[in-house]
Write a protein that binds this DNA or RNA. Sequence first.
DNA 1: ATATCGTTCAAACGTTCGTTTGAATCGATT
DNA 2: AATCGATTCAAACGAACGTTTGAACGATAT
Lengths: 227, 227
Amino acid sequence: MPLRAVRPPHETRTRILDVAEELFMHHGFEATSMRMLTAAASVNLAAVNYHFGSKDALVEAVFRRRLDPMNAERLAELDRLEADANGKPLAPQAIIRAFIRTSLKMVGDTRAGGRTFVRLLGRTYTEPAKPIRALIGQLYAPTTERFKAAFMRALPHLPREELFWRMHFMFGTLSYTLAATDTVQLIAGTKPEDRHDARALEERLAAFLTAGLLAARAENAGVKKAA
Amino acid sequence: MPLRAVRPPHETRTRILDVAEELFMHHGFEATSMRMLTAAASVNLAAVNYHFGSKDALVEAVFRRRLDPMNAERLAELDRLEADANGKPLAPQAIIRAFIRTSLKMVGDTRAGGRTFVRLLGRTYTEPAKPIRALIGQLYAPTTERFKAAFMRALPHLPREELFWRMHFMFGTLSYTLAATDTVQLIAGTKPEDRHDARALEERLAAFLTAGLLAARAENAGVKKAA
DNA sequence: ATATCGTTCAAACGTTCGTTTGAATCGATT
DNA sequence: AATCGATTCAAACGAACGTTTGAACGATAT
């Protein structure tokens, strides 16, 4: 007779979420079938539909579980910075660090599965499946608005349009870094143990992004024109 | 009696490639079925397997068709710069422009479908499907090696490890920009007509990337420490 | 003990997938 | 006009997909 394991409440739910996070990251949403997912989680095939309703709803649940706390933490860090500043504009790099630190912290966090998620997230920004992107945009909107406002106060002389683009670039660099850090090795040469060191990565990224954000507007001075 | 259209040689092949590029971009690889693909291309369901062998082989063909000329053009531009420089190291921004210009030119090119491809490409870097990524890395390897060498000559005092990371960041910014320019609007505010202006985009990107590449190594000077 | 509620289970549902098949049709060559 | 290789066609293949079903189960409360 088969043993039925005694499980704490919601054990099945969270195990499905954990495994889904992992498999979605490694194979993508579509390529992850309910059968391989439930098998890997050691739950019955029908468990996903019972607990979440559908596969799509599971995808949404995977994102919601992590994204809300993440953005809350980002906003809390920004709140703290602004409280300390007593109404003065913040240093641009401090804002940048407040934004990227939360993500990078999770890169180093192998145990809780945060690393898997943050990679999944970085990849999903550029994914075509529309309802997922819409959800993410919606969950992110309040956070990006707050950071946009902080940057505008910190850089009053930078034209808004230019700021929007540079935020776009910064966001791209971050999400690509999160998504591709150990899947893409187009530029070989980085030491593997280095790639997951959140502290070192924050330094590198903060330096790069701050310089980019504060860059002088482009002119062709000193650049030999090609063609 | 049904008319059979008279087609130039390889018409079917190229039409499949064009439609595949488009559909892969909009829905992803897995979500694009052979049936919708062949229907959109107005060819028989069996045509893909006849001309390409399998769906995977079609994906590979889609990338090969565009990637080889793209990288050839990049290398030609770098060759030209180096010939003009007479052995002197190049200006970093000139190298950056040589790399990004080819991609950005295609963003503006709606007619030939280059824009669709370059978005597809940008997205695929972070995709999990392994054989595709391996193929792209392999097709890109000679190009990135040449550019890496050019950067090393241009920036002899930048530690190699730091250079590798910054190339990684630059690459990420570019590919995210290509992939997400009109699919993600996390940072609202950019004028839509602006997003496809290759010339303006090159200026913005070149300014951002050059500053990032040349950034001073990170120290915490002037940054109020949080926590 | 019995009823109840949330959960798990094996089995099956209809649909869609990528691929294969063998005949029909085309244009070019004898 | 007959032949031949290349291409297109309609139809079918087995496999895998997400989801549904109804019974079995376990713990808790009556």
